[in-house]
């Protein structure tokens, strides 16, 4: 059993777990940054910037779930290639779309046709991360927007009465205080993000779903030292348990973080904490 679970192929599934964690690790801050930018944009006094922020949130949230993932990966790839095509091969006269084909010149291929395998893989991964970040950024923007609106007006007025400029009140009062309002929404989002990671499979990444199907499939003794029947069910059961544990751990961690953040805040929970004297 121990030998079976450490074959070369099994190592790939363990690595793909790391891929998932890496995706989460990169996407979460990026999406947060997108969300923060989006939310700040909606509060802007310059109308076009505000529209841009609102439009971003509305469009991404309005489009149904995985359609967006499937759509965005191809769309992004084509936009990049078309842009490179126009920049790198200006003397190419034929149109890019020829019937059902999408034709760009060799130099505009992304990644280049002769690039090594790992470049292809990491390019695919980067596009996936970007897609995740855009989609979840819109959701995060929505949460942060709500949180910014939830900071009591009096807090900002206090800042203004001290003679702070609007930029100063934004960075020194609004931003530090909004996190406690944003955290429930953001932690919810984190849960959704964890549960969205298997969709990497749809984006053509060799992630845990891919390997679970691959490894669980029927193996005959001709190709492997460990022949077995159709074990895919057990592999997916393992994935199920993995995700359950992952969500549970996140839940507990986020709960603790929430308690930590509520300390000294002007919310009901903060009041309750102060009264209970558990600070």
């Amino acid at each position: 059993m121990a030998c079976y679970l450490t074959t070369g192929k099994h190592m790939s599934i363990y690595w793909s777990v790391l891929t998932v964690l890496l995706l989460l690790g990169i996407t979460a801050p990026t999406a947060l940054a997108f969300g923060f930018a989006g939310a700040s944009a909606t509060r802007s006094r310059i109308a076009p910037v505000s529209w841009l922020g609102r439009g971003y949130i509305a469009v991404v949230r309005g489009v149904p779930d995985i359609a967006f993932f499937l759509f965005f990966v191809i769309a992004l790839d084509q936009v990049i290639e078309a842009t490179r095509h126009h920049v790198l091969c200006p003397d190419w006269v034929e149109p890019i779309r020829q019937g059902s084909d999408f034709v760009v010149c060799q130099a505009a291929k992304m990644p280049l046709g002769n690039a090594p395998q790992w470049v292809h893989e990491s390019y695919g991964f980067a596009i996936a991360v970007f897609t995740f970040a855009i989609v979840f950024g819109a959701f995060a923007a929505n949460v942060i927007q709500g949180a910014m609106a939830a900071v009591p007006r009096g807090q900002i007025e206090t800042g203004e009465s001290y003679g702070m400029t609007s930029r100063q009140t934004f960075w020194r009062i609004l931003v530090p205080q909004m996190w406690v309002y944003a955290l429930p929404g953001l932690s919810n989002l984190w849960m959704v993000l964890i549960k969205a990671t298997p969709l990497l499979f749809l984006l053509g990444i060799q992630d845990i779903v891919y390997w679970a199907r691959e490894l669980g499939g029927i193996k005959t003794s001709r190709f492997t030292d460990y022949p077995h029947g159709d074990w895919r069910m057990w592999y997916f059961l393992a994935l199920l348990v993995f995700y359950l544990i992952f969500t549970r751990v996140s839940e507990i961690t986020l709960e603790r973080l929430m308690t930590r953040l509520t300390r000294g805040q002007v919310t009901t929970a903060g009041e309750a904490q102060r009264k209970a004297g558990t600070t």
């Binding site: 298997p198 159709d230 994935l239 995700y243 359950l244």
Partner: peptide, 22 residues
């Protein structure tokens, strides 16, 4: 409730399918 809310629907579909196959 925990089982179905805590795991991705995508994995549930896969698991369900292979469970039924078995």
């Amino acid at each position: 409730i925990f089982l179905f809310r805590g795991s991705p629907l995508f994995i549930q579909f896969f698991f369900g399918y292979f469970l039924f196959l078995k």
